[in-house]
Design a protein around this nucleic acid. Structure first.
Lengths: 215, 215
DNA sequence: GTGAGTATAATTGTATACACAAATCCAGAA
DNA sequence: TTCTGGATTTGTGTATACAATTATACTCAC
């Protein structure tokens, strides 16, 4: 009845999602409720709940024996990038048109975070800050539908984005592109924000597809 | 362990989703696990599972006391249409490029179904056949990501689509647009399929927004 | 009359028990 | 050896019991 409480089920979901999408569990690996229940020292109930949510996001799929970790193919990555290419620009446009000053401030903060880590050349943190910039735009675009659509797609690429930004040249370029997008959003210039974002996603796609080694 | 079995939880999910999206439960209404458990004569376990999935699709949201049915505003409808406008064309293009003969046959079948009901002027069945045409394209486009992205958005509009196609003129026009899209897909002409689909979604959007009376 | 504090009811979170289906394994016969 | 039939194992689906938490209503003091 308390809705701010972080339940065990939520924690399990986040842990499993992170571990699957970052490669701790390999593609094809089978997860069963009982084993996870033992490993994580919680009952099957919260495990079930987490697995069901992962299934709905097609991160795992049912088999005759447990839930199998769904792999992501090179074609999947390409398709997801293509979808993002059509939506992220619109999200940025809406963010430019709809965000208020406090929203723009918080976007600026994530940008400064990214700048800090880019200077420190810390790939893991760069990846997180990079992700946070995009997710902040989703949150600012004023459309739950857009946010709910883009967030799962974005999360599915984290593993590959980490590889991508571990090249310092790409990390630097991504930061500059983000800065330009931020300026357009801060100026409430929807058209420019959209245009710059599309270019940015194109570059990100090329960088990911160039480096992605997929099973 | 059996994964083809239709569980009680699945049935409850589908029933609740249908009833919420078609307006049986009003926006703002609060659903509690215990009441649903009594009403539907099943234990709380499958109810919980269904509610969690509905929550993940943002069809309900947690409150201090139970889950509240989330309403959909006119702005939401407009945003969803705008998103579909950017994606459905791509889905149709991919379907044209990727579908095999059996897929094209099944698409033709849904089209014939729609034609039949349009002649009979049966709005409920027209709406279903219309939906099925789009969902078949999602299934044929060869991208789970695209399918998983578009399907929930599409389902959220069913209530408004029913109103839209209850005008015979729109039902007739929608059928003709579908026929043209089908021809392009059957001819594996991706560019034409994309162009026609974008026009179709624009028309559908205009029709929905014109008629939609939102709380 | 009002406010604070407390008891109670309502509701969800979690654990556990049991039922059932499917896969697997093994023994015995052809 | 190979096939078959049943016992065993494994895993999920569902129900239920219990714990934790919070809203609510009520009482009592001021």
């Amino acid at each position: 009845m308390e809705h701010k409480m972080i339940s065990i089920a939520d924690q399990v979901f986040e842990e499993l999602e992170r571990d699957i999408l970052s490669g701790v569990y390999e593609r094809g690996e089978v997860l069963t409720e009982m084993k996870l229940s033992e490993q994580l020292h919680v009952s099957r109930t919260p495990i079930r709940e987490a697995l069901r949510r992962l299934e709905q996001e097609r991160i795992i799929e049912p088999t005759s024996k447990g839930m199998k970790v769904v792999g992501i193919s090179r074609a999947d990555i390409s398709d997801i990038c293509e979808i993002r290419l059509r939506l992220e620009g619109l999200a940025a446009r809406w963010a430019a048109e709809r965000a208020d000053e406090s929203g723009i401030r918080s976007l600026k903060e994530t940008l400064e975070l990214q700048e800090f880590y880019t200077q420190k050349q810390d790939p893991e943190s760069i990846k997180n800050a990079d992700s946070q910039f995009h997710q902040t735009i989703y949150a600012l675009c004023g459309s739950h539908s857009m946010q709910d659509t883009l967030e799962p797609l974005h999360r599915k690429l984290v593993k590959y984005r980490r590889v991508s930004v571990s090249a310092q040249s790409r990390a630097q370029k991504s930061l500059e592109e983000h800065k330009a997008i931020f300026e357009a959003i801060a100026a409430h210039d929807g058209a420019t924000a959209e245009k710059l974002t599309i270019l940015h996603v194109q570059n990100a796609r090329d960088s990911i597809l160039q480096r992605a080694i997929v099973q």
